[in-house]
Design a protein around this nucleic acid. Structure first.
Lengths: 202, 202
DNA sequence: CAACACTTACTGAACGTTCGGTAAGTATCA
DNA sequence: TGATACTTACCGAACGTTCAGTAAGTGTTG
């Protein structure tokens, strides 16, 4: 009974399948993900999965949405009225100095999915949107800071892309290399850039 | 320290297989790569591949080396004696403002391989080394600049990680999203950061 | 220089396993 | 009783891998 209507909510069974897919991805990676392996992580049979999803591709697209939702939950943040602190706050959410295991796992899964965006259009559109939203968030904070003379008169969208690329790159390095302190070093340097190049000297 | 493996050179047949693997990866992506699909890109049979490589894993490890070699060829650069220009030069090699199709393809393949580093230790070690070398290159340029008073007295390794993360992140975004000008914007902002935060005011 | 032994670089046909997917049946409840 | 949410049993295709066989060389010997 896989409907193609815009669903915001998942049934219990569907949520269990998504959770099982998550575990299977962590264990085997995207390239070695199979319906059987998802069923192994599930208290149900392989065919039960096909009761809820017509094809493996359908399931994967649903899971992409599931993972993206989870990612956007973890970075939800209310912006205040002090741009430098807001920026710091957003960056800490995206690239914590000491990430917990849960967030590391989610990022590992997302990197696996994102690599599919090279070949798969549906995936690429999804990650294009994610980056678009993140860039917009950062840009609006920078614009805010320029308006109230906290920040200098820089190009907000260029600076936003710079910050986003740095954060994405550091996160990417964190899950694909053993260079333990690299991400934190990049973040510290980024913070000092914000503080001394971006902030007004007054 | 890494043991120096003697395999620097490939036979004609092996090179053909590597080239076919490259094409198959571009067409199908890592997750859907199979020996049959490599053979389809090759003027030889499936079994011929097994004459040269014992297992699919062996082939993949060999191909990783092949792709990494190709990547390091494209970014080879001699450093001069003017740090700001050297930095610009290295960044242009890694993240060209107008990348040609060949470089885009290589980066697409590398992103596919790199996502395997999350699950596969051999792959992770390889990409750890790549990032280590790149960071070292950037760091030594920054150190040079500090020594001859071109750059301010910043923390060279932090700045190097910042630059590397930005470049990696922008490249990652370039091949996994449709955000056409994002990478260039990030690069421009990074260049202006180098010019105004890093360079000495004198 | 021809006969023989042996190597290299393959081919085509299979092997057993796993894949994505389905058909038919069953237990549970409104 | 009929819809819902499954299970068991299975299908053909594709998977990685192996095998027997072979054409084209290379080196050795009479």
């Amino acid at each position: 009974m896989a409907s193609d209507s815009p669903k915001q909510h998942w049934s219990t069974a569907e949520e269990e399948i998504m959770e099982a897919t998550y575990r299977a991805l962590l264990k085997h990676g995207y390239a070695d993900l199979s319906i059987s392996r998802i069923a192994d992580e599930l208290d149900k049979s392989k065919a039960a999965i096909y009761y809820h999803y017509d094809t493996k591709d359908d399931l994967l697209v649903a899971f992409l949405e599931f993972a993206v939702d989870r990612f956007e939950e973890t970075i939800e943040t209310e912006t205040g009225d002090e741009p430098p602190e807001d920026l710091e706050h957003v960056i800490e959410k995206l690239l914590p100095l000491q990430p917990d295991e849960e967030q590391r796992q989610l990022q590992a899964v997302l990197v696996g999915l994102r690599s599919q965006a090279v070949t798969n259009e549906v995936f690429r559109e999804q990650f294009t949107q994610i980056d678009e939203r993140l860039a917009a968030t950062v840009r609006s904070i920078v614009e805010c800071g320029i308006d109230d003379d906290t920040f200098r008169d820089v190009d907000p969208s260029r600076v936003a892309e710079h910050i986003l690329a740095t954060v994405n790159g550091a996160m990417y390095g964190r899950v694909t290399t053993d260079r333990k302190s690299a991400a934190a070093a990049a973040r510290v340097s980024l913070a000092s850039y914000i503080d001394s190049e971006l902030r007004c000297r007054s």
